[in-house]
Amino acid sequence: MINANHSQTSSSSSSSYQQTRAHCCFEEWMKLQEKDHSELLQALTSSPDHDHVLDLDQNNKKEEQMRHLVEKGMNHFEKYVDKRSQLAQNDPPAYFGTTWCSTLELPLLWLSGCRPSIYVRLVYALCGIQFHSQLSGFLEGGTLKTGDLGDLSATQLRKVDELQRVTIRAEEKLSEKLASFQENIADAPIADIASWKTLCLCESNRDVDDALREHERNIIGVYAEADKFRLSTLRELLNILNPAQSVNFLAASKKLHLCIHNWGKQRDQSQGQEH
């Protein structure tokens, strides 16, 4: 009994340690999001008005700066995906649980993150908002400025539309794969436990333990695949946009993510829930 209790305590301590590492990974990512957002916003606000003519060197320098910021943000995202995938190998439940998210964020999650199709929806929303802003300013006597998401070309819109359709189909396939693995919990040998005539609710055997570990690996694989899918979809979308539009989009998407996270924390704290 002493050995069993010691084993349980060690297992609990290890799980708690892994949960802490996963939580720290997420907090580091959010701080990096804030820093990236600040740099993107600075690049946008420091951009000269488009009605002012710039020489070729200035234009090239500005475009290169924006390309650098976009690639820097994508590298940060890729490193975050890799790091949390590594952590998941040590403690899979930490990958699924996301206890660091607020009760506002949890219902929005799809495979431990956002749906990639949300990127496209956000582009359409920003396109409409910024186009109307441009038009209103022009009708009030201002100059019609271009270069943001309100200035997407017909070719860009077609590519975004195609990306949306491909993304939704891929999301459905991943959701189906996850559902299939989840349903496997009702198959033998795991389901055999339900037929045992015993009151012990924690009894298992080697076959069950092996099946549970296999089930865990399968689920982790789907989540890791979803992370890579989020990354690749975002890259494809940014390849459609020009550097200024990419910076505009990334600044808006990071602000939305940060705001939802902060709103959720404030709501939970007001209700006495701590993270």
Rank of each mutant, 00 (worst) to 15 (best):
R121Y: 03
S204A: 12
G142C: 09
D207P: 03
L54S: 05
A4D: 05
R267Q: 13
Y223K: 12
K83N: 14
I168E: 13
L234Y: 02
G147Q: 05
P116Q: 00
Y119W: 10
N75S: 11
V166Y: 03
R169C: 03
T167N: 06
S15G: 02
S204V: 11
L109G: 09
G128V: 11
L178W: 06
S232R: 12
E176L: 10
E183F: 04
L40E: 05
I190E: 00
T155D: 14
A211T: 08
V53Y: 03
L32K: 09
K254L: 15
Y223E: 13
A252Q: 04
H23Y: 10
G272T: 09
P48G: 00
M1T: 15
E171G: 03
Q58E: 01
G142D: 07
R267N: 12
V81K: 08
S14K: 14
I2P: 00
R115H: 10
S11T: 11
H257Q: 10
D207N: 15
E225A: 15
A194W: 15
C114V: 13
D91C: 06
A194Y: 15
Q164S: 14
P189K: 09
D210G: 07
E105G: 00
S195H: 08
L258D: 08
S136V: 14
Q19S: 07
R206I: 13
R230I: 00
I129P: 04
N242Q: 13
T146S: 10
R267S: 11
F181W: 04
L212Q: 14
I220D: 10
L87Y: 11
